[in-house]
Design a protein around this nucleic acid. Structure first.
Length: 708
DNA sequence: ATAGGGTTAG
């Protein structure tokens, strides 16, 4: 056009800028802008606003966009609203507010942008004020307010506006249907879709997308199929949002055949389609397929990398997760708060404090150190690794959600900070945060671990009387544990028999654990038999019972339990457990290959012990490995040192394949032991029942991450 | 073209 000497007009420029959208090419944009200036359009509001809009999409910091906005000779209502909306979307709410304040007109678009800005940054009350001050709200104003309420969990208020508003459009319905689904009211959201349908209206792409989300949330496969055919009927199935939502819906409904079909029939697969596929596959434990999809996809974004990392995290493959992360960094992809949160939970699982600290540093570099997700993950990581730095992270948080409070309470429980847990709990209440079921599990666990029986009772009662929270099995399990550890086995038994809900195996398991501590073989046998019926495949119950007998020196009974296991074919998978009798530690190995396993472990332990010594970890010479005693050759290994037990438990993993792990020496293990561990850092007993890693207690320093 | 709605990771 230009080469033929035709001067482009306003609409040409607008069309050209819109064509540039999605190309992500800032240089192209700059040249368009130069062209506009040459063609004497630099002062044109419409062209200017179109250029501004382009800037807001590419410029992540918005500095260029803002400078351009400031320089605009003329601004219309949309120039203002575009700038306000862009600033508030990246969280620069204060700048958005000051732009809004400077707007002399404060037109409806400008107000709507500001309203949404407030709502998306959690300031619903200001959003509401803005809405209420608007004299003639348009349908856009109503929609913005409905969405604002829904995004802030105020679904009743949103519903009330929805019922009250004079005119609704398709966006109103989409906002309401989405609001319900986002707030766990999936059935309501599907009912709204049905009502929309009944009224003879056609559902928009957004309505369909969000309805699939709702179906997926509740696993409503049949409903999902019906909506799917509706989508085909209205021709929406080619829309990428709809297609992507279908992938997610079918994978949440565990219908992988349909996932594959939808994916293969899609005309255009964007990054979200691939990401949804990866997420769906990994959530259905098809890790290999997820990885293949990941390797095949054309453009991987931060979400793709994060999805793959968390797939490995969930599968317990921390090393793979880490390798993917390193590759991500090498390829220059910037991690976001979710990436870091996933990695931190891996560190927590591995007890990898050193790596955890490195990721903490990375969070500072990326400016994510105060991000709520990152902080919550940091708190859990530090606590699981036994570092009280968790408190510092918690204290520095500018805002906290229920997860933050629960994480800190759980940490107190794990580390025996009973009284501190109460303080945190009171502080939480004072700040007006309502405790939930998880909160009480943590508080009761803290009581149990600190041996605070009366306090535990008080909080247990307060749950239902003050907060209307009915105790669940987890809470009963804590109480049984609390009473049981305090030696009040009868009371624990009574509590179980008075339960209004059916006690699960965890509750009985807590009682069995108490029997183990107090060496009560009579009750232990009774409880264990019940557990054998409830979970016939769980070898842990058999081992616990045999540990009780072993602790009383009742070796005949130990033999009987082991025979029972063999007869019932329980211990196909090799497993191991620790127990302590007086001044000895015993290591039980179960499974068909017990004998060779012991030999192999023996050898590996010697090797490992040598490494420990070489690294200055076990200075005392009395930590000798005792030979297997004749009479318990088959199943019991004895040693005399608690420290050696720590070394042993380092090698132990919950998955029951200790040998492999030992060879790698990469993953430190979970210990199912009743040995008391005291943290050198806090001087307090560590609760090892909840997956705490304690290798650093060998010498106060974290050894993991060095891989020895 | 621009103010309001929708999919993926945690």
């Amino acid at each position: 056009m230009l080469s033929r000497g035709v001067r482009p007009d306003q609409s040409n420029f607008v069309a050209a800028t819109s064509a540039v959208t999605g190309l992500g090419n800032l240089k192209l944009l700059e040249s368009l802008r130069t062209l506009a200036m040459k063609a004497n359009f630099e002062g044109d509001v419409v062209v200017g606003t179109a250029i501004l809009n382009m800037y807001t999409r590419y410029d992540t910091r918005l500095d260029l966009a803002f400078r351009f906005f400031e320089g605009m000779l003329e601004k219309n209502e949309y120039s203002w609203s575009t700038m306000i909306s862009a600033l508030s979307q990246i969280g620069r709410l204060d700048d958005a507010i000051s732009v809004y304040d400077k707007d002399p007109e404060k037109t409806i678009p400008s107000r709507c942008a500001m309203l949404t800005g407030y709502a998306q940054n959690g300031r619903v009350h200001e959003a509401r004020q803005l809405f209420e001050q608007t004299r003639n709200p348009t349908v856009v104003s109503w929609n913005a307010m409905i969405a604002g309420y829904a995004q802030n969990g105020m679904i009743e208020e949103a519903m009330e506006l929805f019922d009250r508003m004079p005119v609704r459009n398709s966006i109103t319905w989409a906002a309401m249907i989405s609001g319900c689904a986002q707030n766990g009211k999936n059935e309501d959201s599907l009912q709204l879709l049905a009502e929309l349908h009944r009224r003879g209206m056609l559902p928009s792409h957004s309505c369909l997308t969000t309805s699939f989300f709702a179906c997926g949330n509740i696993g409503a496969l049949e409903m999902g199929r019906q909506v799917h055919s509706l989508a085909i009927k209205v021709g929406s199935h080619f829309n990428s949002y709809v297609g992507n939502a279908l992938i997610t819906m079918y994978s949440k409904c565990k219908n992988l055949g349909d996932v594959a079909q939808v994916f293969s029939r899609m005309k255009v697969r964007d990054t979200v389609s691939w990401n949804s596929l990866i997420a769906g596959l990994s959530q259905n434990s098809m890790l290999e397929d997820a990885r293949n999809a990941f390797e095949q996809m054309p453009h991987r974004d931060a979400v793709s990398w994060t999805a793959m990392i968390s797939a490995y995290v969930q599968a317990g493959q921390g090393n793979e997760a880490l390798e993917i992360f390193l590759r991500m960094l090498r390829e220059g992809i910037k991690p976001n708060s979710s990436t870091l949160a996933g990695l931190l939970s891996t560190c927590a699982g591995l007890g990898a404090t050193k790596l955890g600290r490195q990721i903490h540093c990375l969070a500072f570099e990326l400016g994510l150190e105060l991000d709520i997700f990152v902080c919550n993950a940091l708190i859990t990581m530090y606590f699981k690794c036994g570092c009280v730095d968790a408190f510092g992270v918690f204290d520095d948080m500018p805002e906290r959600d229920i997860v933050s409070w629960n994480s800190v309470l759980a940490g107190c429980a794990q580390h025996g900070f009973g009284r501190e847990a109460f303080k945190v709990f009171e502080q939480m209440k004072a700040e007006g945060v309502l405790p939930n079921h998880v909160t009480f599990v943590a508080v009761l666990c803290a009581c149990s671990h600190a041996g605070l029986v009366d306090e535990g009772r008080h909080y247990f009662n307060s749950m239902s009387s003050d907060y209307g929270l009915m105790p669940l099995n987890g809470h009963y399990a804590c109480m049984v544990d609390l009473l049981g550890r305090a030696g009040r086995l009868c009371e624990a038994e009574d509590l179980i028999s008075d339960m209004p809900i059916e006690p699960d195996s965890v509750v009985w398991g807590a009682l069995l654990g108490a029997c183990r501590i107090h060496q009560n073989a009579e009750l232990g046998r009774k409880v264990a038999e019940r557990l054998f019926q409830m979970e016939p495949g769980n070898s842990g119950n058999y081992i616990l019972l045999s540990n009780i007998y072993a602790s009383l020196g009742m070796w005949d009974e130990v033999g009987k339990v082991r025979k029972l296991m063999r007869d019932r074919g329980v211990s196909k998978e090799p497993g191991c457990s620790w127990t302590q009798t007086k001044n000895r530690l015993q290591y039980f190995v179960t499974g068909d290959r017990q004998h060779e396993q012991i030999e192999e472990m023996h050898a590996l332990l010697k090797e490992f012990y040598g490494k420990l010594k070489a690294n200055g970890y076990l200075p005392e010479t009395n930590c000798v490995l005792h030979d297997i005693e004749e009479e318990q050759k088959e199943n019991v290994l004895l040693c005399h040192s608690e420290k050696l037990a720590v070394a042993y438990s380092l090698l132990n993993t919950p998955s029951g394949t200790p040998i492999q792990i030992i060879k790698n020496l990469r993953i430190c293990g979970d210990c199912h032991t009743f040995i008391k561990f005291v943290s050198k850092e806090t001087g307090r007993e560590i609760d090892v029942r909840d997956g705490n890693r304690f290798h650093h207690f060998i010498d106060g320093a974290c050894s993991c991450g060095d891989y020895w």
